[in-house]
Every structure is written in C-alpha cells, then in structure tokens.
C-alpha cells in the first residue's frame, strides 16, 4: 500500500525541475561578481606593487602610483562617517524609541525612503549649492564628505533602526515597568545591546560610498593633485574619480593601470566589509540573550 504512484513520480519530477531552475538562477547571480574579480586580478594584478600604492602619479598620470587618491578616499569616507553616524543614529533612536504613531512619524519615514531614492548626481548638485556655495566650504573634502553623508543618511538610519529593533521589546517593557524613563532604558539596555550591530551596519553601508563618483566630482575631488590633503578644507584626489579619469580622460594610459586602480578600490571596499562582518560575527557570539 505504500508503493510510489504515477502522481508521486510526476510531482517529484516537477519538484526537481524547479529546484534546479532556482539554483541556476542563483548561480547566475554570482557570475558577474566572479567575472569582474577575475578580469581585474588578471589584467590589473601585474601593476600592483608597494610602489603603486605608495607613490604619486607621474608622466601625466600614465605612470607612477595612486597614493594621493588612496589617501583622499580614506579622508572622504572617514569625514562622511563622522558626519552621518551621529545624525543618523540620533534620528534612528528617535524614530525607533520615541516617535509616536502619528502623521509626523509617517512623514519622516516617507522622507527617509524618498531621500534614499534620490539619484547621486542630484545629491552632487545639492552638495554644490549647499556646502560649496552657501556654506562657503569651497570645493573641499568637507563639502564632498558632507554630500556623501547626506546621501548615506537614509541607509544609516535604516541600518540603525534594524539593530535597535532587534533588541526584544520585553526588555524595554521590563525597564519601563520599574519606572525607568525612555532614555534610561536606551542608555542601559537598548544601546549596549545594539551598538555592535549599529556600528557594523553603518560601516558596511558607508564604506560603499568609497566607490561613489558623482557626488564628489563637483564638490571636492580633483582631477590631479601632486600632494596629499592636509585638512578638510583641501581638495583631494579620490580613487573613484581617478579610475574614471585614467580610463576615459587621459591619453596613452597603459591598459593595466585602470584595472589596477579598480582592483585596489574593490579591495578597499571588500576589506572594510569583511572587517565589519567579522566584527559583527564576533560580537554576536557574546550576546547575553
């Protein structure tokens, strides 16, 4: 009475088909990543050397290294982080822990979603108008980083809100019922239990801005500068813009050079991501619930 029927067979075949199809689709997804990495390593690998990382471009940017661009990107991302993290975390704390369910909260959430949808070139123009001209920062690291910060604020807020909301509601209720205020609850329970998630999530999101070109090219990133930035009011070279420049704007660049720049840029972003993921995994192991 327990033998296979034709219907069972048919269902099993369909099952297998779908399973295979979905697997193939998933594999297709990682194909571009692998191809990109392979091509970059194959073509750009040869130019990589310590000299490449530690010297300035020479011969009209057709030779030499990428040091000013590398340092510039580190500046841009760091200052952007310094600006967007406090504001983003504060906004997320308000929205997650205080905001009542009303029209203002709904409007704020809607604004954040919309801000995330603004194209980066529009952010760039906003950055020129607001930071370069209105605040008179000029084209500088500060103006470029603030533009990046505005652009990343929505993702910082969303990542932070997710981390905050991962702290079980029961803990908050327990605190409130002992007479603790919202702030006491945040400071003693909510933040200590979500700070790791917040930091890693935020670093993960903001490190992606290392690759952004449009928002910085009008606000602070320079075509070529033979020196390193000394402060936030200097202009700077940046990896992403440098890649654009050596790929399309400069004649007689050896073929391997742009690939080398791209490879370093990707390695930077991946390294930041890997660090933050490792950090998160480590901290998750020590959760107290």
């Amino acid at each position: 009475m327990f033998e296979t029927t034709t219907l069972n067979e048919q269902n099993r075949t369909v099952e297998k088909l779908w399973r295979t199809l979905l697997l193939v689709m998933t594999l297709l997804l990682i194909l571009p990543v692998l191809v990109i990495l392979a091509v970059l390593v194959y073509k750009g690998g040869p130019v990589l050397s310590l000299d490449f990382l530690l010297t300035e471009p020479t011969n009209g940017m057709t030779a030499g290294g990428i040091l000013p661009a590398l340092i510039g990107t580190v500046w841009l991302v760091s200052v952007a982080l310094l600006a967007s993290v406090p504001i983003g975390v504060a906004a997320a704390l308000y929205l997650s822990e205080y905001a009542p369910e009303n029209w203002l909260t709904r409007a704020l959430n809607l604004a954040i979603i919309n801000l995330a949808g603004v194209p980066s070139i529009v952010h760039a123009l906003f950055g020129v108008g607001a930071f370069v001209l209105f605040f008179r920062f000029g084209t500088s690291i500060l103006a470029a980083s603030l533009t990046l910060a505005v652009m990343t604020l929505p993702v910082v807020i969303v990542a932070t809100k997710e981390s905050l909301q991962a702290v079980p509601q029961a803990f908050r209720e327990a605190c409130w019922n002992m007479g603790a205020t919202r702030w006491q609850t945040i400071r003693k329970i909510v933040l200590p239990n979500s700070i790791s998630g917040i930091l890693t999530g935020v670093i993960l999101e903001v490190s992606r801005t290392a690759g952004e070109t449009a928002p910085i090219m009008f606000t602070g990133a320079a075509f070529f500068l033979p020196f390193l930035p000394q402060g936030v009011f200097d202009q700077t070279m940046a990896m992403s813009l440098h890649l654009f420049v050596v790929s399309t704007q400069v004649p007689d660049v050896p073929e391997a050079l742009p690939y080398g720049v791209a490879l370093v840029l990707i390695a930077m972003v991946l390294a930041m991501n890997a660090t933050s993921i490792a950090f998160r995994t480590y901290l998750r192991g020590r959760k107290k619930w």
């Binding site: 029961a170 803990f171 209720e173 327990a174 605190c175 019922n177 003693k188 329970i189 239990n193 959760k287 107290k288 619930w289």
Partner: peptide
Amino acid sequence: MVFQRPNPLPL
C-alpha cells in the same frame, strides 16, 4: 509588576 514570562534584563 511581575509578568507571565520572566523578563530578566540582559545584564
């Protein structure tokens, strides 16, 4: 107040 499910804080 004491609740149905024990809710000690993560401390």
